[in-house]
Computed example of a mutant assay.
Amino acid sequence: MLEPVQENPFPDSHTLGEGPGPHPQLEPVLPLLGRWHGRGRGEYPTLEQDFAYEQEVSFSHDGRPFLRYEARAWLIDGSGKAVRPAGREAGWWRVMPDASLEVVLTHATGIVEVLVGRVAGEEIELETVDVARTPLAKEVTGTRRRYSMREDELMSVQEMAAVGQPMQHHLAARLRRA
């Protein structure tokens, strides 16, 4: 006979008042915890035109020294109406005792990135050190990401090297705590 399913005793926490308390190593990234929502603009030389997008990002923890990360975006038209889904990624941000970061991101498009970086006050910088791709995934050789935390605002800028192009600006967004 099967045992009854029990509620998960270790839920991820989106706020400091839910679930287990944060691991002490998470101190430099605690302001990221929760859900963020906002808009951004993107461009790249291989695209016919610049684009506007809306994005939702969430960071949570389960008491261990890493963050669970998930982001989804959708293209929007000039009036702000959703046109179609865009980028989707999920992963883990490991926070080391010296405030350095090791990040693993998986993209729905068949790309896996390993990034390293550092938290310095309200600024976070990450850079790709390795990329794996499925056979039909677009060629992406690296990204650089910068996050700035200011009270209830999270700004992100992403550069990308892909499809034969050198590292250059790709995305910029301004998100507010949801």
Rank of each mutant, 00 (worst) to 15 (best):
P9N: 03
Q168I: 10
A161W: 04
F51T: 03
P85S: 04
W92F: 15
T109W: 03
V83N: 03
L32C: 09
H107M: 03
A90R: 12
M96T: 14
R64C: 06
T106C: 06
S148I: 11
E151K: 11
M96R: 15
A108T: 10
E54V: 14
P4R: 01
I76V: 15
R144K: 06
Q165P: 02
I76Q: 09
M1G: 15
F51Y: 13
R144S: 08
R35H: 15
V131P: 01
I111Q: 05
V129A: 08
T141H: 04
S156G: 14
P11Q: 02
D12K: 11
E123P: 02
E102G: 06
Y53C: 04
E159D: 15
H107C: 00
E70H: 12
L2E: 14
A162Q: 05
A52M: 12
P11C: 01
P135E: 09
T106H: 09
G78I: 03
I76H: 03
Q6E: 15
A172Y: 07
G121H: 03
G78M: 08
S148E: 13
D152G: 11
P97L: 02
V112F: 05
L67R: 00
Y147Q: 01
W92M: 13
Q25I: 06
S148C: 11
P166I: 02
T134P: 02
R118N: 06
S58R: 10
Q165I: 06
G19V: 00
G142P: 04
T134H: 04
R84D: 09
D50R: 15
R176C: 10
M155Q: 10
R35L: 12
E102V: 08
L32Y: 02
G78F: 06
R35N: 13
L30K: 14
R150L: 06
H169K: 14
Y44K: 02
S13M: 04
P85E: 08
E139I: 12
A178G: 13
